[in-house]
Amino acid sequence: MYKIIRNRLEQGYRTSSYPKKPIHLPAIYRGLPVIQEQSDLALAQRCAALCPQDAIRAEEKKIDLGRCTFCGRCAEVNDGAFVKFSQNFELGAAKREDLITSGTLPELARHSKTHFKQIFGRSLQLRQVSAGGCNACEADINVLGTPFFDLARFGIDFVASPRHADGIMVTGPISNNMRTALLETYAAVPEPKVVIASGCCAISGGPFHGSSEIVADLSILLPVDLYIPGCPPHPLTTLHALLSFFKKL
């Protein structure tokens, strides 16, 4: 008992005050990209050529955040002459097209379907389905349960049974071998239900794009309501997306 109390005192109170107060990530963290639209085409093409994800649309001067892994290589070309990454981790989007961006995203809170906020605003239960990724997405969703993020204080929980869930949060590029299990899990969730694609794998196949063993894009199978980019999305990105999309803040 004595040890429990001593450890409790040493650990103290650790929960983040986000979103009440802003939080800053280190400068090396790569969030929302800022594209230099005046930069010349040749430079953009060079960046596009080296991008492992083929996420850069050189002619349009845009990056597809649904494909990007935020590896940062494009920002190294001529010291960020084409693109630099900001520390803005608020990356969630309601529409797939919005993720193809030159550096701005529509404010998520206003693009949520209003009935979602009414139905799920006070309590949201999600079933997570892991479908063929690298498990880092899952790991950084799990982290939302640790004391620092403490997702449950917002009335959002991850549940074991799809029958108890209001929706599913899918990670991974949906391997062919997980396709049926995913669809069955979705079918077991009662209506009305939401579908969240978390991480570039679920949005576009991510690093595995082009493989014959995956579906690659969740929206081929199910109607996606919320996209959360990243590889994996930073826990704050997920927290922000869930709060803005579902909560009446």
């Binding site: 479908a131 391997s175 071998n177 690093p207 595995f208 493989s211 063993e213």
Partner: peptide, 21 residues
């Protein structure tokens, strides 16, 4: 269930994708 065909991809993708794979 998690099979993504990684080994086959590593043999066929452009080198810029090797590390991220």
């Amino acid at each position: 269930y998690q099979h993504r065909g990684v080994e086959r991809m590593l043999r066929t993708v452009p080198h810029k994708r090797l590390i991220s794979l």
